[in-house]
């Protein structure tokens, strides 16, 4: 599914190297978690995958099912099936949530040469998905993320994922700012989307989220590299002992 090879990234505006050779391979249907201390480059990796400006790729490659991702515009990546659930979802005053989602869905379908979804079909689809995520229909009418609580914003990200049905989902600290109940709701939403043809890259600080979203593989990232890879037990080790031990071990 996703192949990241020796990825080196620096900030465009200053001479600061952030990713220093990331190698990562995610198979179809698998859930990978990336954990790591603050400043290790986790969010940068998520942004670079989604095509955000401000980063310069100095070396390496990223492929989605063999297709070069780094050459694509953000909207092309989305149409190819890549999705980033933002750590801080953006507020867009004046654009209704429904309009936003329908525009996005139809833009992706158009880019893939598929027929657009009619207003009626879309309404049905969105109501059904919103219900499972316990999203109030009122929230769908409001402008994108404006006045949403932290939990609502994150649920809205998962709703978008459920509607757009990407094959490679990157979740950037989706658990941050969530209480236990909200986290469970978000995790249930993610689990409902788990499928043999869909992969997840779950970026998180804490093991907590991984109790709800069981990963197949756990990576530890530090100083711009993946320094250790293991099974779910690796997350527990972080929870119990912190990052210091692991970092000392690989140093």
């Amino acid at each position: 599914m996703l192949d990241i090879k020796n990825l080196h990234v620096k900030l465009e505006e200053e001479d600061k190297r952030i990713l220093k050779g990331v190698d990562l391979h995610v198979d179809a249907g698998k859930v990978h978690a990336i954990m790591g201390p603050n400043g290790s480059g986790k969010s940068t990796l998520a942004y670079v995958l989604s095509g955000r400006d401000g980063y310069e790729i100095t070396e390496g490659a990223v492929a989605l099912d063999g297709e070069d991702v780094l050459d694509m515009e953000p909207e092309e990546r989305a149409a190819a099936g890549l999705f980033l659930a933002f750590q801080y979802p953006i507020e867009i005053p004046g654009v209704g949530n429904m309009t936003f989602l329908r525009t996005a869905l139809n833009a992706q379908r158009k880019a893939r040469g598929e027929a657009e979804v009619s207003a009626g079909e879309f309404l049905k689809l969105i109501r059904e998905k919103a219900k499972t995520l316990q999203i109030d229909p009122e929230m769908l009418k409001r402008p994108v993320n404006v006045g949403f609580s932290g939990g609502e914003k994150k649920r809205n990200e998962i709703l978008q994922m459920a509607v757009l049905e990407p094959r490679m989902c990157v979740l950037d600290e989706t658990d941050s700012g969530l209480d236990v109940d909200a986290m469970k709701l978000v995790a249930d939403g993610v689990n409902a989307l788990r499928d043999a043809g869909r992969s997840f890259l779950v970026i998180t600080h804490y093991q907590r989220l991984l109790n709800h979203i069981q990963p197949d593989v756990v990576h530890i990232m530090a100083d711009g590299r993946i320094v250790k890879t293991g099974g779910p037990e690796l997350a527990l080790e972080v929870e119990n002992n912190g990052y210091a031990d692991i970092l000392a071990e690989v140093a």
Binding site: S50, G51, R52, D53, E73, P74, E75, R77, A78, A79, F83, L84, F86, P89, I90, E91, I92, F100, T103, A104, L105, A107, Q108, A111, V144, Q160, L164
Partner: peptide, 12 residues
């Protein structure tokens, strides 16, 4: 906002 929309597949 522009990037957010594009990341969801909306053309620039």
């Amino acid at each position: 906002a522009m990037f957010y929309l594009r990341s969801r597949g909306v053309e620039q």
